[in-house]
Design a protein around this nucleic acid. Structure first.
Lengths: 125, 125
DNA sequence: ACAACTGTTCTATAATTCATAGAACAAATT
DNA sequence: AATTTGTTCTATGAATTATAGAACAGTTGT
């Protein structure tokens, strides 16, 4: 899996890393049961600080995407049934992006096409 | 249009305001040509600082959603043809949210339903 | 058993962001 | 003429982001 960090971005490095790991899982490049690199090795690889990678891992754990085994490693969790609360959070996150698209002149059909394009890049789990 | 600001949220106040204004336009509650309240009046209404509202207005202007006429007011811009670059930005913004949904166990069909639910709340322009 | 590696925790620093506050200016509105 | 407008300036305090180094204790590989 290729990770690309942009230091100049307004998105924090640990968030960029979190998102790209999630997208890697969604694409099927890494699967449940797989281990993520150690925080030190990954940090050295990316050219960032160990604590930055650690923060990303804990963000992923909080989201329920990986489980960190102390003194061992970070393992991608199996997919479970999502709660109604988390579904609502997804909708809340989607809403501002879709609203902006419509306001900027994207029509509804095109929004659906955008979503389908993205879904096409990802694996059904 | 009802604006609800959550001071405890991890989302900055000016971003919350920006998003809710965009959603108000998307729902058709406010339309191109309409004026937004003055930064001072809006700030007093919301119980936040004038500069916070001002920051939101400038964010909206940068996105091409309103036009600020100095010494006059902020007016919602008419919808124009969106550039290919902005379309790509929309897709870039959608991607992490959709990827997270899939990883958390939402299936593709359900993602499409989420999007359609949101689109149903908004007006075609 | 030993060495290497693991995540954790602690202190520390610098830059940036977020939100607030007050004041003053010049143009537009009433 | 008085009020309201967005703009600009300085200022402050809290929080966030990213880095750095050190030490600890458990796990893993040889």
């Amino acid at each position: 899996m290729i990770i690309q960090i942009e230091a100049e971005s307004d998105i924090p490095i640990y968030t960029q890393l979190t998102n790209q790991i999630i997208e890697g899982i969604a694409r099927g490049e890494i699967a449940p049961g797989d281990s993520l690199p150690s925080v030190r090795a990954f940090a050295a690889d990316l050219g960032v600080n160990m604590h930055t990678v650690n923060k990303s891992y804990h963000e992923l754990e909080k989201k329920g995407i990986i489980s960190i085994v102390p003194k061992s490693g970070a393992i991608i969790s199996p997919t479970e049934r999502i709660s109604e609360e988390k579904k609502q959070q997804i909708i809340t996150d989607l809403k501002p992006v879709i609203a902006e698209a419509l306001v900027l002149g994207v029509n509804k059909k095109e929004v659906q096409e955008f979503v389908n394009t993205i879904l096409g890049e990802m694996k059904e789990r």
